[in-house]
């Protein structure tokens, strides 16, 4: 059989992008759940703070109230509204998670393409440095970096991004190594592209697929890492509304029966990480 004839081609009309997406979502429930959750978080993060009470306002008269209509997630030991804090934290955590994912993907992919496309010495040096980073568990590396640089949101972003760099460097390097051998690279060279242009204009865009999928997963992990650091008292400090900070503050209350102060922010972390995972796994496994 000739290779150009493919069998399963009954579709005559090209469906629109929207129709294709909705068909894809119906076929893959996990992806749909992930996308729906992320969308919910997004709405929460964008409009939430406008409709809730001030997350920083303390109210000594209403300490540690259980969940009620007035306070859906209850109040904490300073009488602050846990729901308002969790929603405000959503804005910060999602934002930090996405920034970290993008920063580590962009920086890691550029380094990866340089290593993969040029190879030789350059590759050797980059890969050994990556090995050094990989020698530390990511969380510990982030912890050390924040401790060294000092507590602040930008420092947390830099530190956590660096801890995720090796993933992206290795992924993109492997992809660039393959892409480098493709005939279109010869075509680009013949069309007069200088080496840097071949690498970044031609090879890099074609090498980003796996890294983009990885970035979705990393966004989830980054939220977990940031919250974990905050839980340990590193990076983001109280009274900033942040899920990790809230879990840390509420940890003692759980023992005395006031479960809501830690459980709700904890649940928000779990759901957010899951949402990113569902989307990332489904995108990686499928072919969207």
């Amino acid at each position: 059989m000739s290779q150009s004839v493919s069998w399963e081609l009954p579709s005559s009309a090209e469906p629109g992008r929207l129709a294709r997406w909705s068909a894809e979502l119906r076929k893959r429930p996990l992806l749909a759940v992930g996308v729906a959750l992320l969308f919910a978080y997004l709405v929460l993060a964008v409009v939430g703070p406008a409709v809730t009470v001030d997350p920083l306002r303390t109210d000594p008269a209403n300490q540690l109230l259980p969940p009620s209509a007035a306070h859906p997630f209850g109040t904490d030991e300073f009488g602050r509204d846990v729901f308002a804090r969790a929603v405000a934290a959503a804005r910060l955590d999602l934002w930090i998670g996405l920034v970290i994912a993008v920063v580590s993907m962009v920086v890691g992919s550029v380094i990866g393409v340089v290593a993969g496309y040029w190879g030789g010495r350059v590759d050797e040096v980059i890969m050994r440095l990556t090995d050094v980073l990989l020698a530390f568990p990511g969380f510990v590396l982030a912890l050390i970096l924040v401790a060294a640089m000092g507590d602040s949101v930008p420092n947390v972003i830099v530190a956590v991004s660096v801890s995720f760099l090796p993933h992206f460097i290795r992924l993109t390097r492997a992809e660039a190594l393959q892409q480098r051998e493709m005939e279109y690279v010869d075509g680009a060279r013949l069309a007069g592209n200088p080496p840097w242009r071949v690498a970044f204009r031609h090879v890099m865009p074609n090498s980003l697929g796996p890294a983009a999928v990885q970035a979705t997963l990393v966004a989830g992990w980054a939220i977990l890492t940031v919250a974990g650091l905050a839980f340990l008292g590193v990076g983001i400090r109280p009274p900033t509304p942040e899920w990790g900070v809230m879990v840390a503050e509420g940890a003692n209350d759980v023992i005395t029966g006031e479960w809501w102060t830690a459980l709700f922010p904890g649940g928000m972390i779990v759901l957010a990480v899951m949402a990113f995972h569902f989307v990332g796994d489904e995108l990686g496994g499928g072919r969207v």
Partner: peptide, 23 residues
């Protein structure tokens, strides 16, 4: 391999413009 010799992400016009500009 015609399928491999063209950058899959670029529009035909972008591919064809390259030699004019870069050379």
């Amino acid at each position: 391999h015609p399928g491999q010799s063209l950058n899959p992400r670029l529009r035909i016009e972008t591919t064809l413009a390259e030699p004019l500009r870069l050379l």
